[in-house]
Design a protein around this nucleic acid. Sequence first.
DNA 1: TTAATTCATTGTGCATACAATATAAATAGA
DNA 2: TCTATTTATATTGTATGCACAATGAATTAA
Lengths: 205, 205
Amino acid sequence: MESEKIHELLKEKIIWLDLMPESLLNLSEMAKSFGVSRTPIKEVLIILQGEGWLLRQGSHFMVTPLSLERIRETTEIRSIMEVQGNIWAMYRITPEELAALGELEKEILQLDDMASNRQMIELDVKFHRRLFQGTKNSQLAQLLEQLLSHYLRFWLSIPREINPKSFFAETLEIIRAIKAKDEARLRAAGAAHIKKSVDEIMSTF
Amino acid sequence: MESEKIHELLKEKIIWLDLMPESLLNLSEMAKSFGVSRTPIKEVLIILQGEGWLLRQGSHFMVTPLSLERIRETTEIRSIMEVQGNIWAMYRITPEELAALGELEKEILQLDDMASNRQMIELDVKFHRRLFQGTKNSQLAQLLEQLLSHYLRFWLSIPREINPKSFFAETLEIIRAIKAKDEARLRAAGAAHIKKSVDEIMSTF
DNA sequence: TTAATTCATTGTGCATACAATATAAATAGA
DNA sequence: TCTATTTATATTGTATGCACAATGAATTAA
């Protein structure tokens, strides 16, 4: 299995709490399980460290702990950049991209109550990723996606039931505001979106 | 020489154009020059890649090219985050931190015309770093510092004379607005600061 | 002379061997 | 029994060897 695949796989495992926060990683063990040597594994772990998923605990790599302070910081940055990102996306998104977003909107509306949490979440992530692309700022898109993933891991750590209608409410409002090219409405929708994020997390502490 | 030092040294070399954009790096050669093996060197290069200083060109590492598009993206993000960062810093900075900023302000005012460009720039970076700490958002601080460094490399690539008075004008206005706890004034100063950045770069193309 | 092909050179990716260090276990003394 | 010290073990850090890929030079054919 090549490096890039291992990187993606491990990131997913961390986000979905398949690798628990604060667990310590064993290089040789991982190398064996992926059928490669320690060298490329370590390189992947260094990258994951740079992305904030791992940190050094002595000479070992540790899955970054869930910390309220960290998620406060993440959300604070998101609250500014995502709102502005939406606005840039509104003005810069191409008709093709907008059409693709419309398709996703349809998919969301067609979700039945039987949809799994994972399905819904992955659809939401996909939606946001497309939206971020629309900003025409690749660095911002990358940043926002990373912040969203970190938020997601935190969010997943709190067991909950998802109601599709409520889960996608702000997301749908955002795409409608973009379609309507209504900046004030978009700004409000974006702010509401983040506020809900904060409330959901803070209400559990 | 240990890893961390090598990392800092190479980053400085890249920022100050001692390692030119688009140059290809030779692992064995670097290993020899630092008196270590290729393994730790490669780990450092992977980290630098994650920070945006290097990218992969085939199987080689290349110093990231200077690109107008990239610096446009960087500046766009800065224009939002730095203004908001200043505001958070204004409300959250501790009296000790504010005093330290005051000291830097003094240092700036005492600069004579004989000061080297490098001295002035390093003082400016130091000032911004302290200001970013004041946001009480370590992730934001780290991000802003990185964006500033990337901007700096670009800025340094255009030969120019620096006039201390003009170079520090906006910076000084920012600290005064913070001392005065005047949000409107701070917002204006921050915006002017970024606008000057953009103008300086765009005027050369 | 030009184009194409071969061959040599150079440099990296990955694996592995070895050294250093941290961790855990075991033993001896109080 | 508890503690301290030593010993053993596990795990990472670093160096290096080898295979392969990319690059460019040289040689050959058109």
